[in-house]
Design a protein around this nucleic acid. Structure first.
Lengths: 202, 202
DNA sequence: CAGCTGACAGATATTGAAAACTGTCAGCTG
DNA sequence: CAGCTGACAGTTTTCAATATCTGTCAGCTG
């Protein structure tokens, strides 16, 4: 039962690939490296993943799904939709910032896929906007947010409007001093726009 | 009075550089090319611009200033601040879109400078947010926008929130089908947030 | 015989030598 | 003598040869 004699599964390949990507980065990590880390030939890896791109995408998907999963807990909370939306956006920003800082090589892989308009990234964005839609819909039902706005369209608008704080293209600016204040200003403005008429402002 | 015997001025060098950049793009355009286009030695170009970077920046600044100038006319209009803001944002989006489409090589130069956090790009952003601030301040005075928000901070928030529609990092998405609707959704939401309480919604 | 191997063809990346470019400056020229 | 030239040193880019990688598959192995 030593690791090298265990059956070769997609899961084990994903773990090894994540490790190789973490060490070498997306530009240098090769399928041969992954196979070597697992003590098998690279042909075996191709038995589980049709192409190198599919492997990269699977690793990235797993990695992104961890974020979506953590955020969905906030959506499920039973409290003030406005506070929930604020916390959700804040958590998304934090998550992306930490990923960029703690796992720069995996983050670079994610950035590459974003630039390539990968299906995986599109799916991630759909997951996130679906969560936003859920909060907005609930907020409208509870009377916290105006019912005048279509939740699906508005969720996408909120997501795009906060792109500076979660899109990897901006990762370089997430370390700047005033970034937190910028985030607050954008979120405050968006929340003003979402609130039902008759509720007090800031 | 033939062009080749005219005095060599910064202005003539800028024109020639713009032409060379348009033809070759930022990666291939050289100072030697610019000098050749002007019929002088490259040493003469260095008499007017200390480095190649300074030359690129001067060309880009001129190019960006044309946009700021056109937009300032909208700021100066004497009409409903909300309509003015809408038109200003729309004009900014259009201007960037056309620049990206009509002058791809000059736009690429601008994108390079953006990625390098050039002083020229920072100045351009300051110009634009100053114009936004002006509209917001005027809107607050006229009672169209809520006075609860600091115009300077809010102008930056509006600028960041609409980044998807003017930041060169997103140029690749400006040709997509739904982009206009996305733009409208974001602007509608922001305007709801800006409006003074007691005014009717959408 | 299910799963793995390793040789292979074509594609991609690396390397290092040669070419081109940037920025300087002593001296030429009108 | 103000303005321009062109040779030059140091750096960057180009290009072609070489090495490595991707993806396939016939055949080996437990």
């Amino acid at each position: 039962m030593s690791p090298t004699t265990e059956t070769l599964t997609a899961e084990r390949i994903l773990e090894a690939t994540e490790e190789v990507l973490r060490r070498h980065g997306p530009a240098k990590a090769t399928v041969v490296d992954v196979a070597r880390a697992l003590g098998v030939s690279h042909g075996s890896v191709y038995r589980h993943f049709r192409t190198k791109a599919a492997l990269r995408e699977a690793v990235t998907q797993r990695w992104l799904d961890r974020t979506s999963g953590a955020l969905s807990a906030i959506v499920a909370q039973d409290r003030d939709p406005e506070a929930r939306l604020r916390e959700w956006l804040s958590a998304l920003f934090e998550a992306k910032r930490h990923k960029a800082g703690d796992d720069p090589e995996l983050f670079a892989t994610f950035s590459v896929l974003t630039g390539e308009n990968s299906r995986v990234v599109d799916q991630h964005i759909e997951d996130l906007t679906a969560q936003l839609t859920e909060i907005l819909r609930d907020g409208a039902v509870r009377g916290a947010f105006t019912p005048a706005l279509d939740p699906v369209v508005t969720a996408r608008a909120v997501f795009h409007a906060t792109g500076r704080f979660h899109d990897p293209a901006y990762a370089g600016e997430w370390g700047r001093p005033g970034i937190e204040a910028e985030f607050e200003a954008v979120v405050d403005l968006l929340l003003r726009g979402l609130r039902a008429a008759g509720r007090s402002g800031a």
